[in-house]
Design a binder for these strands. Sequence first.
DNA 1: AAAGATATGTTATAACATAACATTTTTGAG
DNA 2: CTCAAAAATGTTATGTTATAACATATCTTT
Lengths: 154, 154
Amino acid sequence: MKADKVQKVSNQMGQIKRYCEQKGIKLTPLREEILLIMYQFGQIITAYEILRQLREARPNAEPPTVYRVLEYFQGTSVIHRIASKNAYLCCINPDELHRGQLLLCDICDEANEVFNSGLIQAVTDCSSRYGFQFRDGLMEIHGVCAKCSDGAMA
Amino acid sequence: MKADKVQKVSNQMGQIKRYCEQKGIKLTPLREEILLIMYQFGQIITAYEILRQLREARPNAEPPTVYRVLEYFQGTSVIHRIASKNAYLCCINPDELHRGQLLLCDICDEANEVFNSGLIQAVTDCSSRYGFQFRDGLMEIHGVCAKCSDGAMA
DNA sequence: AAAGATATGTTATAACATAACATTTTTGAG
DNA sequence: CTCAAAAATGTTATGTTATAACATATCTTT
């Protein structure tokens, strides 16, 4: 792994640890290992991919081990579940109340989490026109990312 | 089943048959049976629920039988797959290019398909700010429907 | 009637997720 | 400190969703 990536992951781990301490979110060795796997993976990841990697250190790990940690972190806004991909992603900014938009590239599978309050407002307004109360959460938006739409790709 | 519901389902079947004929979408006995099951169910439905019902008439039906029909209809914009629910729904208005918004009630599971071009514009605009090309499709919006937010519910 | 395309049948398994109960570890009250 | 409750993790089994791969049947066109 390249040095700059090691540094990046290390920064992310430091940041999330501070966040968890502030919020009273308990980290355990298992939970930290799973966060580390997710940050190192650097993109959306499935529960079973986490399991495969976790087994390098813990050969006896079973699905519930992973799913319980994922559930705990979802409940504490540390990670998102991406329903349309059956995958998970560490939240870029848990302070933003765990909402925002996820721009999902259908070509390269890259996920870019952004926060646009105008769009949240637009959805809220549109919904209310039908008497529907929009529940703030992560909105999954599918399309093609900048890299993939810039020529280059066949 | 109540008479008005029978009438409604019958109308829906008539409408979709005309639509398919216009568009060159081939209906077969199996495909019609599955559409009928979906319209009669009247809400979002899982592939395995369709399978259970299909087996009343075709006891030997297996998952691929259902999934292939669902795939065919998705490709022809006759039904939507709802990723966040692992479920399927007949499209209210296939002519609207198979896009729009699906207001999904997290309490009663009701799905209401609507079409708001302003919202599509808002999402397109927001996405493009990040160099992302929004792919028009069904947007899944979670929240609470009018019925469920009107007191009454505990 | 034959050839190719389309649709469906059939068997097996992959991929995603949770229920239920056992054990271990942590935490807090007394 | 220590015991009891709570929290976390281990373990086994199974539920749920979806597809791969190959066989057979039907339809279509010549």
